[in-house]
Design a protein around this nucleic acid. Sequence first.
DNA 1: CAGTGCAGGGTTATAAGATAACATAATTAG
DNA 2: CTAATTATGTTATCTTATAACCCTGCACTG
Lengths: 156, 156
Amino acid sequence: MATHCDHAVAHDEPHDLQAALDRARERCSTGGQRWTAPRERVYELLLKAGAPVKAYDLMDAYQEGRAAKPPTVYRALEFLEHFGLVHRIASLNAYMACGSDDEDHAAAFLICDCCGSAEEFEPGRVTSASAAAAAHGFKARAIALEVRGLCQQCVH
Amino acid sequence: MATHCDHAVAHDEPHDLQAALDRARERCSTGGQRWTAPRERVYELLLKAGAPVKAYDLMDAYQEGRAAKPPTVYRALEFLEHFGLVHRIASLNAYMACGSDDEDHAAAFLICDCCGSAEEFEPGRVTSASAAAAAHGFKARAIALEVRGLCQQCVH
DNA sequence: CAGTGCAGGGTTATAAGATAACATAATTAG
DNA sequence: CTAATTATGTTATCTTATAACCCTGCACTG
């Protein structure tokens, strides 16, 4: 995805990409699911980006020469999201690799409207929303908290 | 928008539609903006629905006979959202009239995946997210909290 | 009460995001 | 080895949203 400004964009690429992929593969096979090429490729692209990426940008980046087609990428994304490896950021129509080891956690993001970066933050804060929901007789299954604003680099 | 189940859907239509429209008009002119026909019509439709409505459903409902075209509705929605009269619910790609009198508040919703209803809940809970953001050196401008799950009617 | 400037709206076209439906290939179970 | 299952490839299409342009009518100026 194009950046929106000239500020230095924090590049959150994991220092050990391979290790992250290995963890994902293991988590997947532990869950009795197959770790296939498109799933790995999409996850790898998201890890490398270290920032929210749009589905169509994943298609372009998927393979040199020929781009992947929508269902390939969307199916992989759906799978990865199911496994908690990827979050969809609804307010951006974008997807981001998840650092957490917890398979089933709330998604909470600080999203910079200037540089396009996003930081996943401590989801514990969000559990109070769960409590609020319960108070309304509502059974929560997924919680998404998206804070839009300016990151530390971009406020200056 | 089509309902997803046979449960009784809480119909949150305000008992005094006209009063709500009057309040909106006043708020708008106080802000030095024009309260025009498409803005009123879109807001009215959302108030009547009392639930999240998709943009293209608003176009269909806009006027008998001929449907409104996308820019008409999207422009009205953008305006209304700016004034805090309407919230966009990103995870649904839908829009909902806002009850609050506070022009600039966080959006927090309990969204039922079964009947399609949504309830806006006390945004105070969300301010802790603001604090979390600040702790990261992040300047928050808008906060959206979307809890997906089952409402009281639909858990049964 | 003109004249004029500009915000708002109508219209057409198209971009961006996501899914449906069906055919084919790969994996696993029996 | 074969059948059943799961995943991928492919084409087409649907949904959601915006761009660009022109015209109208209100609202301020003098």
